[in-house]
Every structure is written in structure tokens, then in C-alpha cells.
Amino acid sequence: MSELPTSDLRALKARYPAVFDRPASSRLGVPTLILAALALFIFGLNELEFSPQRMWAGLNQLGWFVLLMIPPDPGASLPTYLAAMGETLSIAVLGTTLAAAMALPVSLLAARNIVPTNLVRFPVRRFLDSIRGVDTLIWALVWINVVGLGPFAGVLAIAVSDFGSFGKLFSEAFETADQKQVEGIRAAGGTPLHEIRFGLLPQVLPVIAGQLLYFIESNTRSATIIGIVGAGGIGLQLAEQIRVLEWQKVSFLILMIMVAVAAIDAISSRLRFAIIGRRAVV
């Protein structure tokens, strides 16, 4: 390849000033942003008490822990752990289903094409947002105060915190549904309730089922952690074994969680594709 003749280069520069002669403001934009991000990062490290010594000592410790984790070994508690895993799965399935059942009617109120007035929609949306703003673990603590320690508190915690997410997702599904079917029902003399039942629901149900399965999957993960605060399931066992430094049991429990999550993953993506066809769930 040869160099361009100078005259060509000059002509090119004259013709595309935006490429060759970008104003300083646009050239400096990205570096400034990166510098600012880096500065905040370093400030953060400093503020959060990071230090090379602590890092080094901690990594050393962590290395020991990992060595002690091998080989994973449940000891004599395998039946307990299997029961706890079953409990976790139950919490996930039941919590998610409850959340979806509660969210469906509320999501209708938050959908623009069903409730045209901002007066209802706005407060409903903000209400759902505030529920989502509170983490599942916090809900678990609150429910433990109400129904006592145990998996039931976990079910309620997942149900309430997913109620917020489902409400939002379902209402979006309703909003993106095709309006033509609804108009068709209306033209045939259907009432608004008919419009929802025969015009919207058939379109929206597959989407909702897909999301439900997806959440069951992700809630299997959440259900493992709410045990840490005492709401039942495998998390309780895990937190206990970590606190008493039984590393072989810890690694076994973590492996168990990973296998269970992978299994649920496989099952639910199968079901999801069976319900909605080969489309990605959004």
C-alpha cells in the first residue's frame, strides 16, 4: 500500500472537517470522562479502606480457605442439605407464583392502554417502584418479624419483592400488545372486560408465562440467600457452615446450589421455548 498524495490528503481534509479536525470539546469528551471515573474510583478505594496490605493478607487467607475446601464433602449432613435444597426450590416456586397472581390485576391498572388516566397509573407505578426499591433480604427480615423464622417468611418475602417487578413487567407486556384484536372485540360488541379477556390476555399470557419461568429460575438464586437472615432453605445451612469455618461443607453446598440452579435453568428454558416458541424472552 502506498501513501496518499499530499494534494489528495489536503482535499480530503477540506471535504471532511468533522473527521480530521474535530473540535477539542468532542475529542476531549471521552478522556475526560475516563479520568473522572478513575478519580472517583481511586477516591472510593481510599474511602472504603482499601490497602495493599489488607488485600494481600486477605488473598492469603482466601487461598487457605480454597485449599481447605477441597475436596467438597457434606459429612453426615447430606440428607439435611437435600431437604434444605428442596425447601429452597419450594420457596422459589411458591413465592414467584404468588407474586405473579397478585401482580396480574395490579399491572392492568398500571398499563397505559387499559387505564388511560394518569391519576391512577402514576401512583400505582410509584407504588410498584418503591416495592422494587427494597431488597428481598429486607422483606425477609420484615416477614420474619411477622410470621416468625422459617421458610414461610421466605415465600412471603419473595412474593412481595417480585410483586413489584412483575407489576412493572406485566404492565409493559400489556402496553406492547397489539391493539387490533382489542378493537375487533369492541367492534363485535364486547364489553371492556371482554376486551381484556379475549383481546389482550391471549397475547399477553405466553409472555407472562415466560417471565414467570425466568423469575423462578432467578429466584432459586435469591431463595438461597434469604436463608442467611433466617428465612429457611439452603442459605441458612450455608451461612452457618461459613460461620463455623467448615470449608468442605461450604464448597459442597455451593456446588449443590450451582447444580440446582443449572438444572432449573435447563428445565425452565425448555418450558419457556415450548410456550413462546424459539424467541428470546425480554
Binding site: 472504603l48 489488607r54 488473598l59 487467607q61 480457605f65 433480604l137 460461620r243 446450589i257 450451582m258
Partner: peptide, 21 residues
Amino acid sequence: RTVPDIVFALIFVIAFGLGPM
């Protein structure tokens, strides 16, 4: 991504000590 962040936190609190790190 499968191991929840709070489980990592539980282990790291023991290895690195209590605190935001």
C-alpha cells in the same frame, strides 16, 4: 454469577475482615 454476591461477602468478611472492602 451463580454464587450470590452476599455469599461471597460472607466468605470475604472472614478473609478480609469486617468492612466495606
